[in-house]
């Protein structure tokens, strides 16, 4: 019984520590692509970009959260910039 309680306590502690430090990487390739698409659209048509945000079921706060998380990571930032550029070229045609 004591072992069980000890195990539960360890798991709980791990969960708490994980949540407290909580710098989760809120982005993957797909997420970067989505925000890059929105970021490119906002340069062409702001209203359309807001609509796109809605379509992606993403709140503005969530969008900002993802953008800042990407910006903290140099590689992800570079990927985002490249994708945004590609989408922008596509939208401007």
């Amino acid at each position: 019984m004591k072992t069980k309680i000890f195990l539960i306590a360890v798991v709980a502690a791990l969960v708490i520590v994980n949540c407290a430090t909580g710098e989760e990487k809120a982005f993957d390739q797909k997420t970067i692509e989505t925000v890059a698409k929105i970021a490119a659209m906002v340069e062409v048509d702001e209203l359309e970009a807001l609509k796109l945000l809605e379509t992606e079921k993403m709140s503005l706060d969530k969008y900002k959260e993802i953008i800042t998380a990407i910006t903290l990571d140099a590689k992800a930032t570079e990927k985002f910039v490249q994708m945004k550029k590609a989408f922008l070229e596509q939208y401007q045609k």
Partner: peptide, 30 residues
């Protein structure tokens, strides 16, 4: 406005990327 916020947020990675390329200190960017 939401559109303005969206626009300025979208430009954050571009600014960071350019600063990194120019050789700005990573700690300061972070």
């Amino acid at each position: 406005s939401d559109a303005e916020e969206l626009k300025s947020a979208s430009r954050l990675p571009d600014a960071a990327n350019d600063a990194r390329k120019a050789g700005a200190e990573e700690d300061e960017i972070q």
